[in-house]
Design a binder for these strands. Sequence first.
DNA 1: CCGGGTTGTGACGAAATCGTAAATATTCCC
DNA 2: GGGAATATTTACGATTTCGTCACAACCCGG
Lengths: 242, 242
Amino acid sequence: MAHIIVVEDEQELARLISSTFQSDGHTTEVFRDGRFALDRIDDRTRPEPDLYILDLGLPRVDGLALCKRIRQDRITPIVMLTAKTSELDKVLGLELGADDYITKPFSLRELQARVSAILRRVEMMSRENLPDTTIDSKVIEQDGLRIDPVGREVHAQSTSISLTAKEFDLLYLLASNPGRVFSRAYLLDTLWGDTYGGFERTVDTHIQRLRRKLAEADNADERIVTLWGVGYRYDKRGSRPA
Amino acid sequence: MAHIIVVEDEQELARLISSTFQSDGHTTEVFRDGRFALDRIDDRTRPEPDLYILDLGLPRVDGLALCKRIRQDRITPIVMLTAKTSELDKVLGLELGADDYITKPFSLRELQARVSAILRRVEMMSRENLPDTTIDSKVIEQDGLRIDPVGREVHAQSTSISLTAKEFDLLYLLASNPGRVFSRAYLLDTLWGDTYGGFERTVDTHIQRLRRKLAEADNADERIVTLWGVGYRYDKRGSRPA
DNA sequence: CCGGGTTGTGACGAAATCGTAAATATTCCC
DNA sequence: GGGAATATTTACGATTTCGTCACAACCCGG
């Protein structure tokens, strides 16, 4: 059973979609305003859903922007809803990377069927062991730290830091979004998988090991900051007041 | 520009689709009978198209069967055309592995847009990711190691190293992308074929044999690095700090 | 049909990593 | 300042992953 985020400003339609999927046993979260949805998307304190359903025309921030934002660093499935066929053409042309597009009006059964198909496909995929599905693999380079996701190497001013798999994933995720807080639950979700039933303190231990290795190589700098009662954050050097 | 096979029994619609894509610069091949289409699909002397457009309801052999047949051994994109929404539900439920589904009646512009989106996505995929898919085989020459893919020979500072087929392929793939990690799953996929069901330990063994031969000839240098829990990586000599 | 070279497999010890718990330290808030 | 909540450190056992080896299956040329 999946968790689905629905962003749709027409109240009645939003309600219908939500209740449809809920009666299928899924859980839903509904937003009727693009700006609020964006906040939710950027909030690394709460877990990533299994699927997004985005309306194209939204108040304040439109569906296109949301879709782009998500695709910047995630491959979470997205279904786009468009009002007119002519609109659909444009959207498809932009190649946003959504997984499916539906033109209003549509039957709920169709939406249901398409969503099921996508979820099933994702489920299949995740079973297999495919080579690195990371969308963007950019080298991160800042204040003397170089993080290369392709070779999975980390260098601090010419000396190499050897990290374990988990340590690297953790660092890369944090450093990809400097200044953004990640809750332990979110980190467990994305790095350990949503089926992981372990302890949240596990994250602490890995953070600690990471901190030590960073400190050893890159003498005395606390890039990884603890947010009490919330989680962890990666700060660029000097971004905090002395 | 792509080659598209259209299977549609309504003559007028088939003509429209065909001419639409032809005027976009694509080439098309039209079948109005499932049986003939199947023959074409099974004919390995003719080139595989870049995309299929299949109608669900067809004489003699229906679109479902064609879709299944294609998916048995191909990942060529497929767009399914269905007559009714109710039909669509069923088809989606079957999870045939088609890439998109459209319900009649539809606008040609929508079909056009969806097909373009798929073709673009495929194009992206084949470019992205994937290590150097360059067919042109270049001699790799670095730090005293010379790897010649044409003669499939390897020399380490004037002494020749004789490798077996698999060993050579492995070395060549790794060395073509220095600094890049390859998971065992990926290596099995590319070097053994995606249908291979064997064990991942096999890769280890080949890596080991390769390492030994390299070490014998090219005295004490560990170019191939193990990344715990991830895979293997080829490093240029001296790319790792002492 | 024989034999050498190549390839895949299973087993096993060694090594690295990982998760947890318990002890200790820090921060928060009244 | 004091107590509760939260985080860090440490240590250790369990688990996972790796390297190696020997052997059997296979392929192919002679």
